[in-house]
Amino acid sequence: MSQEGARLSIVILTEDSGEDGRATVEALVGRMLDLVVPGYGRHRVDFLPSEPREEEAMRGNVWKTDGRNPREHERRIRLLRYIARKLLLPDTFVVFHVDGDRPWAERNASENIAKFERRVLTQLPHVVERAHANVSRARLRSKDALEPPAPALPLEHLLLVCPFRSIEAWLYQNVRRASEICRREHGGRHVGDIEAWDGMREKLDELPAPDQSLCLKKSYNLELASHGFPAQLAYDVRKSFAESVDRMGRCGALRDALERTRGWG
Rank of each mutant, 00 (worst) to 15 (best):
S219F: 06
R177A: 10
A152G: 13
R78W: 04
P125Q: 00
D91L: 08
L171Q: 03
G228A: 12
R7M: 14
R189L: 14
L140Q: 11
D246P: 09
P52G: 02
R130C: 12
R183M: 04
R53D: 14
L121D: 06
M32G: 14
A234W: 08
E243D: 12
A169C: 10
F93C: 09
K115Y: 10
T261P: 09
A178I: 06
L8R: 03
E19I: 00
E56P: 00
L158S: 06
S9H: 01
P230C: 07
V25T: 14
A145E: 15
S166Q: 15
A133K: 13
R44N: 10
A242G: 00
S213G: 03
E202R: 04
F116V: 15
S142F: 12
R71F: 06
L233E: 04
E54K: 00
L28H: 06
E243R: 13
D99R: 13
D198G: 15
A231Q: 04
E129S: 01
G30P: 02
P38Y: 04
D16T: 08
R165E: 15
W170N: 04
K203G: 10
P210V: 08
R119K: 15
C251A: 00
L48C: 08
R31I: 02
R118I: 03
N108G: 08
R42Y: 07
D144E: 08
K239A: 15
T65W: 02
F229T: 05
D34M: 12
I10E: 03
Q173I: 00
R247N: 08
A131W: 12
V191Y: 02
Y172Q: 09
E202C: 10
W170E: 14
E74H: 05
L254R: 10
S2G: 11
A231L: 02
D246N: 15
S136T: 15
I167L: 15
R68D: 15
R165H: 07
R59Q: 13
V25D: 00
T122C: 10
L171G: 03
L224P: 04
L158Y: 07
A196P: 06
R78D: 06
N174W: 11
G21F: 10
E185G: 02
R184T: 13
A253D: 07
Y82K: 04
R139P: 01
